[in-house]
Design a protein around this nucleic acid. Sequence first.
DNA 1: GTCCAGGCATGCA
DNA 2: TGCATGCATGGA
Length: 272
Amino acid sequence: MFIKYVENDIVLQGVKCLDLDLTLDCGQAFRWEKQSDGSYSGVAMGVFLNIKKENGDFILKNTTKENFEKVWRNYFDLDKDYEEICNTLKQDELIASTVDRYYGIRILNQDSWEALCSFVISQQNNIKRIKGIIKRLCETYGDMVEDGFYTFPSAERLSALTVGDFEALGTGYRGKYLEKLSKAVANGEIDLEKIKSLPLEDARQELLKIFGVGIKVANCALLFGFGFYSAFPVDVWMKRVMEYYPDGLPKCFEGIEGIAQQYLFHWARNNL
DNA sequence: GTCCAGGCATGCA
DNA sequence: TGCATGCATGGA
């Protein structure tokens, strides 16, 4: 990957395996908005970005070297060799055609607090409605960092809300989960940074203690917000996929189960 | 009107 | 430990 600094933009050349549609709009992040020119705008880690693919390069608009190094390099997982990962996954016959067809899915390294909240909201819910709830949450309680774009509100901010405040956003029965979660993180009862540093199984057990967090939500949070590439979320779609793996996951998934899962999830939603 | 969505807590065996 | 049931909301 080559990085060029052009006026206020950053141009990335030679980035392999990054499809913006598949990665930013496939159910791992809920806040990116596609613009009329095909680019995506969004906020992560409190920072705004507009990103577009042009002639094989990626243009990061109006950003700085500092923000690129601090946020986006890691967020888009740019130092990981996804081409090699895909080749490893393709040792499995079933996933091979899926990887070819949907090539370019990456795992975004999202903020752990945002990921945890987002996937608590996601339970027994559809992606369109999940996006709406999170959008209202950010517009109401986040800070505007760009015209129409808001930060994800901190646990401290949300810890001041009542169940009714959450329900007013359309969370439904998940409001009580969010209320307790916000307060527990804000007062330090739950330490997300510490959970990040634990071994996978311990981290999962910690998340499972949280009211409103079960195995599926825990695994999504671990994969998308805590850096655990081995976490393998199984939802209603993945249950259908798992019928193709009656003997368990193939060996070539080891250590990258979560990346395999994203390809299979996408395939399932479009084909099952 | 019914069914379903990136499930979970609860009660009961 | 395993299974049935209720749960908020909105789109198909």
